[in-house]
Design a protein around this nucleic acid. Structure first.
Lengths: 206, 206
DNA sequence: GTCTATAAATTGATAGAC
DNA sequence: GTCTATCAATTTATAGAC
């Protein structure tokens, strides 16, 4: 009910969820009508209410699925036995690759989190992301003198900002800085993986 | 018609624009009905169509106004005769102060730019923001060996990311990292002005 | 499970009285 | 300029036949 079942992605319920995800993400909650989703799924509108009672309920189911894609194996990287520099490089690489494959998710989540923070936050809780491990290691390496003393939360926000914003604001940035050239912006994002990692590491080295 | 006239902010047209700005920014274009705006302005719905022909036209007028607030005296800073380090510090300070006063604008713009990139981009053109001057100075200081050779567009995107994202994603970040404590997050944003400037400068120094 | 038909409310927009 | 009344279309959601 909550996750799109892989085995029967062609079942009615699976088709609805896939279609709803596509439409919700591209048009937002308010911009999406149940008819839009029914059309996308090539299915009768009434079936949406048969499987999910309301638009809100359908959205919750879809968001849960989309958000789990959005927070990938980050937790694994955070808890790994690696130097903080390697971790940062890995996180940036994995995160930016994933973001490029799901271009519209960042802006979607940023919008919905502002429209209805509590709804989204409670849906997120399930994901179980815990930054504390990373923060712990970070504090340790500061005390060892390996890195500069910086608030670890500032570092986390820096990292997220540098990875997510360029994708969320892509339609704007691509037009202003890259003459709306898709290929050039893709190359820019590709180079950016190294740039961001270097940028962060360079700034925290003691 | 485009700007909210300061002198007669209590005129019908001014009241409509102020109300529309409030509602559009908090609920988005699709989430806002003309009735919502009329209620907010405490005015008859028909008057919205009398002053602005359609919802689209009203949105354009409002967005133009909101966006001009969003891009403040940045252009002045960019063209000033200052070292690149001073400029970065000034831009970060001015930008983050302004963002905190207009908390909902970043997420609003990010959403609308993804919903309808061309509409928003054409509305933006009027602002006449030109990053080329800054890029020129940047390239010069690289050749002088004052700063590391970095793609100036990467630097601009870094700067925008670090300033805008923490505000746009605030409802999420504040809950995850700061136990949803408003005062603590405000302090975090305040400290962040220095952190971001240091962070950038530290990363570009040769 | 899937469909048609339809309810009940809301949407953007217009006509016309004052 | 401002209002009431109203249109036509669309919205979410339900009832009921098959």
């Amino acid at each position: 009910m909550v996750n799109i079942p892989e085995q029967d992605a062609k079942s009615t319920e699976g088709r609805i969820l896939e279609a709803a995800k596509t439409v919700f993400i591209s048009k937002g909650f308010d911009g999406t009508s149940m008819q839009d989703i029914a059309d996308e799924a090539d299915i009768n509108k009434s079936l949406l209410h048969y499987y999910f009672r309301s638009k809100e309920k359908l959205f919750s189911a879809v968001f849960n699925y989309a958000f789990q894609q959005f927070i990938p194996h980050i937790q694994g990287i955070l808890s790994a036995e690696e130097s903080i520099f390697v971790k940062i490089e890995q996180i940036v690489g994995v995160y930016m690759d994933m973001l490029r494959k799901n271009q519209f998710i960042p802006a979607f989540i940023l919008h919905e989190i502002n429209m209805n923070p509590d709804r989204l936050y409670s849906l997120m809780q399930v994901s179980g992301l815990r930054p504390q491990v990373f923060v712990g290691q970070f504090v340790q390496e500061i005390s060892k003198g390996i890195i500069r003393p910086i608030d670890p939360r500032q570092l986390i926000v820096n990292l997220l900002s540098l990875c997510i914003f360029p994708v969320a604001a892509r339609p704007l940035l691509q037009r202003i800085l890259f003459e709306n050239n898709d290929i050039v912006y893709e190359k820019f994002l590709d180079e950016r993986k190294k740039v961001v990692a270097d940028f962060i590491i360079h700034s925290i080295k003691a």
